[in-house]
Write a protein that binds this DNA or RNA. Sequence first.
DNA 1: GTTCGGATGGAGAACGTTCTACACGCCCCT
DNA 2: AGGGGCGTGTAGAACGTTCTCCATCCGAAC
Lengths: 349, 349
Amino acid sequence: MAADSSSRNSKRVTITDVARHAGVSTAAVSKVMRNAYGVSPAMQERVRTAMTELGYRPHAAARGMRGRTYTIGVLLDNLRNAFFADVLDGIHEELEDSEYTVLIGAAGFGADEQARTIRSMVDRQMDGLVLIAPGTPRAEVLSTAEVTPTVVIGHHDVSEVHDSVVDADDVGAGLVVDHLVSLGHRDIALVSAAGSRTARWQRTPEIALADGYLRAMERHGLAGHARVHHAAYSDEGGHAAGLALLSGGRRPTAILTGADVAALGIYRAADELGMSIPDDVSLVGYNNTAIASLAPVQLTSVDQAGRTMGATAARMLIERVEGRRDRSMRTTMTPRLVVRRSTGAPGVP
Amino acid sequence: MAADSSSRNSKRVTITDVARHAGVSTAAVSKVMRNAYGVSPAMQERVRTAMTELGYRPHAAARGMRGRTYTIGVLLDNLRNAFFADVLDGIHEELEDSEYTVLIGAAGFGADEQARTIRSMVDRQMDGLVLIAPGTPRAEVLSTAEVTPTVVIGHHDVSEVHDSVVDADDVGAGLVVDHLVSLGHRDIALVSAAGSRTARWQRTPEIALADGYLRAMERHGLAGHARVHHAAYSDEGGHAAGLALLSGGRRPTAILTGADVAALGIYRAADELGMSIPDDVSLVGYNNTAIASLAPVQLTSVDQAGRTMGATAARMLIERVEGRRDRSMRTTMTPRLVVRRSTGAPGVP
DNA sequence: GTTCGGATGGAGAACGTTCTACACGCCCCT
DNA sequence: AGGGGCGTGTAGAACGTTCTCCATCCGAAC
């Protein structure tokens, strides 16, 4: 009896049980659940007590066959970028008092794997999707958005079919360059992800960042000193970029990166080369994730208010899911520079 | 026509469409999909080409009504503990060539919220669940496991209804104490999470850790010096614990924590108190997450092989889901100490 | 006292699968 | 020739909801 694995089929309480127990029709119970129109207070009461008495929980898969599943899917590429945790916090915060459940698909960096994950979320009849800087081709996202309400976080491309939440990455890059220039730096390099051109996104966060960086350098008359190096947003990516930049000939005195985690890879490279931060080279991250503020790290970074972005995305998504809005929209956040100990005046060469 | 939101109802390709297109019954198509018994190679061929020609994708919710959903749910408390990312990597690795999709529920630390998340995974008819150190009452987990195959990671309690994957945390604590004693430390404190007794788990990872710590201290004749301080496994939790321990009277010369992230909070506290690591106090983390190896951090830590734990859990789970095993089992991993720069000989007082 | 109309509840058909039963044809064995 | 078995395919009933009608009731207006 104890570990009876056939008890897997022990009956669930269904809507029919509730209906019978309350002495009403299943249709009535369904109406109460969805608090649809045409239910008397007495009926409400009766059904609700029946539901709690039986411990009824609706069968999400069955609901998905006709109506909603009350599930929101979030796509992200990897769990190690703490910025995503901030965004997720915002999403949860916004949705915690609703009846929606948030499920996360961590798809990795590959476009194919991400596409597969998106598709399986659609196939599971999720009511809405939040895609954080998807690496899949734009067309794929657009066709998804036509079927399921979708909010894209990160990419600046606007679309009629999905909503967007972005950070003014170009402004953020400008803030950093201004800060570094005011400290006396001139040789400022940017390390960012290679914006996947093939995916047909016109303005990924990386592209916006590079734009802002180049314009700021120009503004300070430093266009000739500008240098962009591509690297994956991971510790390894940053490490490789750091080695390349810091052991090369014309060595930058300051490096700006598109992600904190990559900045830490550069930190490691500098360490290996016997250089110290910020004495030999200044370092700036992006996203102001929790690691940036850690005591031994103290990384100057750009805050994107990930939590707010997540909450906003969730709110916009629910509006769409519940049909309260049918026009697409985009929200733009303003970044803020957080200065810590990883930046300082350039050392005398 | 462009952003026609009513095209949301544009017909999906269903099994019926495939059947008609291939000139067979829907039952036959279903069999092919599940590669069930009783299908000729010719039928296979015919149906498969029909499926690709139409671009058919099975409707997961509908499948969930009768059979599998091919979905595995993973519960974790927060996304910021990088150890979970390792576990997830292992799970994905094991499942990437299968047709299962992994969906993550990030439920936060609250027992209620975790319970809600577990329930919604069950309600979504997920085929199997991986629960990483759940904070919900044990009874809740047991009743879930009776309905859905479940693997619990972390808790040492064995059960007939679910499988387990654990790390020998007591051994890990012993390794750390040995290491610290060999460096000359005697006042070694442990900072761990408060094992939630109310939840009725007999051996949470925290309890096992504390056990191992106390036994090791005894073994070295240092039972009198043992001290356990409780704190949440977060930066803030570690910070508070660090302040309490390091500004108190009998100050430890070394601190062992149950999570890297908490160790970094202690780091911050030490920093604020003007103490340096490892000169004034040695610090050891747990899990050997990516942050431990970061250049500016270099935290001595205990490696739990999270990736392997995840892969093992996934393999065990699928065995259960597919009915290839009906007895519960437990896998135990052996931890390994990774010495970095955060530990050293105690300073002369 | 009819008729109308709004408010409420219910019947029953979807929804897209899986799964149980069974039918059919074929071969092999008595 | 008759039967038994196996291999292959199909019919049709679930599964637990939602949703579209439709029926009924009750009060108000004529």
